[in-house]
Design a protein around this nucleic acid. Sequence first.
DNA 1: AAGTTGATCAACCGCCTGAGA
DNA 2: TTCTCAGGCGGTTGATCAACT
Length: 250
Amino acid sequence: MGRSPCCEKAHTNKGAWTKEEDDRLTAYIKAHGEGCWRSLPKAAGLLRCGKSCRLRWINYLRPDLKRGNFSDEEDELIIKLHSLLGNKWSLIAGRLPGRTDNEIKNYWNTHIRRKLTSRGIDPVTHRAINSDHAASNITISFEAAQRDDKGAVFRRDAEPTKPPPDGLGPGEAAQVPGPEPGPVHQPPVPRGPHGGHQARREEGGRRRRRRRGPLLQLQHGAPQEHGVQVQQLHGAPDRHARLQKHRDEM
DNA sequence: AAGTTGATCAACCGCCTGAGA
DNA sequence: TTCTCAGGCGGTTGATCAACT
């Protein structure tokens, strides 16, 4: 028994958003504000489920979003907040103006986790990887929340108190040891089938690549004030056309 | 040039929570 | 008190593309 789907799936679009859909959604929210997401799609003339509209707006279309690379300060703040809050991405995002939980979650999984690992820090516990007593004396790490099959939440750590609603209680920061500076232990760099390929990437920091960025948004001529480079436009229409074609074929 | 690999990130899925009836 | 529903969240997926062989 599950709950009924949030919308009639047979009559909703899925996948990448089109410019027209973005325009409709943006125009509707600008005119009426963020109201009832469930009824919004119909009211706005969108064949999308309300959840999808909400996600699109929050993660992408909201005008106050900051785009572009994370600064080093943001990096460190995310790491610190993660050590306090664990995977509470929405709480972390709440302390990073202009960033979304989805963006931070992705950034954590793709960049920061590797960064911490390369420093010899376990991204889960925020402790040195080769610490013999990592399991003891835990003062932080809400990260350890785990679910059983029924979805009940258990906590592996010894922290008896629940984090306050905004996640940061008084005095909590004082307990944060912070990521220990410098590589305590360099884990062996996994070597892919291409030899030093991966190792080069690891040691060179971020792999140099063109940020794809908000393709559709840019493609639509969205405002550039979020620090997005015009170059990111390249290839976007092509990709969009392919996506559309793919969706049509389904 | 072609094929492979791995990184990136938008979007989806399913569960939880809280409000209202 | 119980049930229903909408909103919200975290985890995961899959398409795309750059880097590399």
